[in-house]
Amino acid sequence: MPNPCIKQASNNFERQDTYRYLLGRYYVWGIMRSQKGIKMLNIYYGDMPEAIYNTSLYFDNTYYDNWLQDDFSKKMIKSVDKAVVLSGQAVESKALGVIPVTKLSGGLKTLLLISHQPHKIFNASTCGDNCAKWILKIAERCDTDITINLRHIMDFGSGHFQIRILNNDTVVNNMSELVQVAGYYI
């Protein structure tokens, strides 16, 4: 009788190999695209060991004051947390009054991380659907490709967009195309 543990281990190795292959392929593809000046939002669905999972904690210990000072960040903060930036260390929130930056919402902290550390991969499932349009905007204005990790199906709205799903290396242009792929990997 075959040992189920061996089968399990073999499946894990196969999964890891596929994962490494896809990341490698994406890396080469990313260099080619950067050379052509084309940028895109990449999403990896499901568990991703490289991604920073607890984005709130990571933000609290790594953010710089100037992350809050640019107009784009101020707009995001106003839109998501309904808060006005007072300084690099404090905001005035409609619900909570004057609070330190570490008390911003988990979703907003993740947006600020994606925006200011585009080479890192963050768990964007800490973001609600009200952050989706901002993720698309960050990807649009960033000089490089952005990659995020999602463990749920974020609703990017009914508009047109271009997102590459790294799990199976496909580009989707709207939610109808996205949901038909993403559900297999979460």
């Binding site: 749920h152 199906i153 609703d155 709207n174 939610m175 109808s176 195309e177 996205l178 949901v179 038909q180 993403a182 559900g183 979460i186």
Partner: peptide
């Protein structure tokens, strides 16, 4: 529920 309901887009 989330992934099944998301198929309403398609």
């Amino acid at each position: 529920i989330e992934r099944v309901m998301s198929l309403k887009y398609a």
